[in-house]
Design a protein around this nucleic acid. Structure first.
Lengths: 283, 283
DNA sequence: CGTGATTTTGAAGCATTTCAACTCTGGTGG
DNA sequence: CCACCAGAGTTGAAATGCTTCAAAATCACG
């Protein structure tokens, strides 16, 4: 998901003309005379940047509130450890204290795909709530520590302490938004831009956590990245090569998984440009 | 997503019960703007149940619990009404009492995509929680009625009545799962199968609500469906034509938006087959 | 310092998009 | 009543971008 006041956000408001901003909050969307309003006519004018309000670092609040108000255990993991598997009974949630995990979705017929990446302060296990069984598998990409929180304990704590509930809802909602943004990327961006966007998201997750954004170690194979992005590993490799050739990214000598981003806004400009080339404007 | 029991899939399917049959004769025919329903049409055509657990109908619980425990207003909408717009301040959630809505995600640079479809009993507005501004626009696809629920009122009610909190978490989690499944479809299914999957999901949403699944009126243009699925409108049209040619679906004389699904399992078999042709097996 | 896994790169194949023409429907006005 | 028009949908042919297949280069681990 997008954060808040990052270079990318700026682009958002300054984007195509039809999304020019208006003073927010003054538009009555309740039913009036819609005869005059064709869908297009409104699209042309609304839409201030989303998330323009606060950079809200929920990861910090999640950890702080859980530490204060909820009983939890600790679990150390190493790369490739399975935290839980799709189909297992759900009873506990996990909060990433440090490390990095991926959530892998699995279809009944065996198709699978990494559905999300979870950095420090993010929750794993929401997928199990409605059915009582996990709908994804969670796998560590790096060594780290998780806090384990029983779901019923969390519910009790939430009832007692409203802020806990707030933060859980916010965290879940943020995951939802992140997923929708991923969906949007997949359906609107070409391969190169999708890879660029992937790196940008990663960098922004690091930025939110106060980490340096100019160096990323993607703890995945090209194949993993490809599955995550809906591309083949060859396409990912080619895309990275092209990004490097454009100077938008650089490979570290250490290895092809260490990627430098000399200039974040150059990266988001790259995405910007490729979308303009693609969609000269809908309608 | 598709169903059917392959060995790998037993894990997930055993618990989710998203495809379970409904008990005969219990169909809610009261309020809906859907096609008129004759319970007879449901007999013998439902998708076989996957697991042993019940088909948890959260839509029903959401409505019941809100009605009992939360203060809410009512708002009537007609097709193409905007319920809220991306960027507006978030303060209230909406629960679909009847009708059908779409959530449209919008990127800073103007790219947009329908991110979800919400049937009766589903919630709109979760996208606004973390930032305080809506991250999507919600638009009615048909006339209907929404219950409007102030977020702070909902939080208070949740603190008092644990079941309210449970159902909200479950609803949000279900949306998350749905989005992840959409992502999976987009990255693993070819165009025809993706369209087939779309229809299957729709039918299952109807089935969960006790409505007939053999006739669907997709209240969208081909272009909308295409945006939702990451395809062009021409591709959607061609895919539908091919599905009809295979006999997996039929067009009603009424119009090209009325689609009959004579046999749901044939539809999911179609998806199955096309994935087998594609991915010989990962790993 | 090999051996297997990962990554890169090339060339051919193919699915989807793009561009374009045409049909069908519903609504409007002469 | 019919002509006309705009929007939605279908279909074909060409273009394009990603995948597939294949081979070589590089990395990683014992």
């Amino acid at each position: 998901m997008s954060l808040s006041a990052t270079p990318q956000k700026v682009l958002k408001s300054s984007g195509t003309a039809r999304y020019a901003t208006l003073p927010a909050g003054r538009y009555d969307t309740r039913d009036h005379d819609y005869a005059a309003l064709t869908p297009r006519s409104l699209e042309g004018r609304m839409v201030p940047a989303k998330g323009s309000s606060a950079p809200r670092s929920f990861w910090r609040e999640s950890l702080a509130l859980v530490e204060q108000h909820v009983a939890f255990g600790r679990r150390k993991v190493r790369a490739d450890d399975r935290i839980y598997l799709c189909g297992e009974a759900f009873e506990t949630l996990y909060l990433v204290n440090w490390g990095l995990c991926k959530l892998v979705n699995l279809a009944p017929d065996g198709r699978e795909q990494p559905a999300d990446l979870c950095f420090k302060g993010e929750w794993l296990g929401f997928d199990g709530i409605p059915s009582g069984r996990h709908g994804c598998s969670a796998i560590a990409l790096d060594c780290g520590e998780l806090w384990t929180i029983r779901y019923d304990a969390l519910l009790q704590a939430s009832a007692k302490e409203p802020m806990v509930m707030r933060v859980v809802l916010a965290a879940m909602s943020a995951q939802l938004t992140r997923n929708r943004d991923a969906l949007l990327s997949m359906s609107t961006l070409a391969a190169d831009a999708r890879v660029a966007d992937f790196l940008l998201q990663w960098a922004q997750s690091l930025a939110e956590r106060g980490l340096r954004t100019d160096q990323i170690n993607v703890q995945m194979t090209r194949a993993d990245m490809g599955h995550y992005l809906g591309l083949t590993l060859e396409s990912v490799s080619r895309a990275l090569s092209r990004l490097a050739r454009c100077g938008v990214i650089e490979f570290n000598e250490k290895g092809r998984r260490d990627i430098s981003i000399p200039n974040l806004s150059a990266l988001s400009e790259f995405i910007q440009n490729s979308t303009e080339a693609r969609s000269p404007v809908l309608h």
